[in-house]
Computed example of a mutant assay.
Amino acid sequence: MAEGEIITIDGPAGSGKSTVGRALAQRLGFLYLDTGAMYRAVALSALRLSIGRDEGERLGLLCRDLPLSFDADKIPPAVILGKEDISKAIRSPEMDLLSSEISASPQVREAMTALQRRIASEKNVVAEGRDMGTVVFPRARHKLFLTAPPAVRAERRYAERISRGERPERETVIKELLQRDHQDETREIAPLRPAPDAFIIDTGSMAIPEVLHAIIIRLLSNGLHISAHGDKIKC
């Protein structure tokens, strides 16, 4: 397999793309590129530095100098800003909405897209986000788009927040998810939508192993033969 093999996974919040992306990357021996976490890290840094969402130039400079890294030894991989583990700090409703707003900045998009492409030029990656197949890696051979009904996605988000010790109202979770959907789908730059050649999977009634099975079958039929470990992929 040539270096720089790219599998993109896009989709709305709660569609399962992060869970599936991590599992798929582990299965194939690929790097898991969590671009959503990257934008959340930018949003958190901007909030701490009192940089407004409309201050494009300052946001662009922030992105270019951001000391961001991932600790792949942890499961899921930890998001490190400087020497601080910000994995929990970026997983909040506030960061959900702020990262969507921040990511609409042309300067932020330009800087982060360049970084994501640079990472993918050096490794085999599973790139998960909202514009991986449409904007960042439009020439990728393997493009996936995960979706699910809003009610199902909201329930997943509710369960996720409960597992973190939060006590949100279900109605609030649904409202926030729909607001995030609207922001992502209607923004002028890189709106959320499937790439024309993406394989679309509705995960609403599927367990993670079923989703992975469907993806592996698709990848095999699309020319992916050998895992990064040199073993034949079996389903």
Rank of each mutant, 00 (worst) to 15 (best):
P77V: 12
T35P: 05
P209L: 13
G165M: 09
D231A: 14
R164A: 00
L31E: 13
E3V: 03
S18H: 04
C235F: 15
E169C: 03
L192P: 00
V152K: 10
A23W: 06
R153P: 05
A114G: 03
I233S: 05
E110H: 12
D202P: 02
I217P: 00
P76C: 11
E128P: 04
V126S: 09
A104D: 15
M132P: 06
A127M: 09
A104C: 13
I200A: 08
R193Y: 03
K234T: 14
L178N: 07
R193F: 01
T8P: 01
L212T: 05
P106M: 08
F199V: 13
R141G: 08
I216K: 15
L33S: 15
E84D: 11
S99G: 02
D34C: 08
P194D: 04
P196Q: 14
S69W: 01
D197I: 10
R180Q: 04
D71A: 12
A89E: 12
R157A: 10
S163N: 11
G82W: 12
S103E: 06
T186L: 09
R180K: 04
I226H: 11
D65W: 01
V108M: 01
E166M: 07
L146W: 02
D10Y: 02
K17Y: 07
G52C: 07
R130D: 03
R153W: 10
Q183F: 13
G165T: 06
C63H: 13
E210N: 02
P149T: 11
A13F: 06
Q116C: 05
I80L: 08
P67Y: 13
F70N: 01
L178M: 09
L28C: 11
M95V: 02
I217K: 15
L192I: 08
P194I: 13
A25P: 07
G56F: 03
V135W: 02
T203N: 04
S227E: 03
L212Y: 07
L44F: 10
P67C: 13
D184N: 09
S100R: 06
R48L: 13
N124W: 11
N124M: 08
S87P: 05
P168T: 04
A140K: 05
M112Q: 09
L49G: 02
R109K: 11
A228D: 14
K88Y: 06
I9R: 01
E55L: 01
L47H: 10
V136L: 08
M95R: 02
T35M: 06
G223Y: 15
T172C: 00
P196V: 06
L44D: 02
E188Y: 10
L115W: 14
L144M: 08
R167W: 01
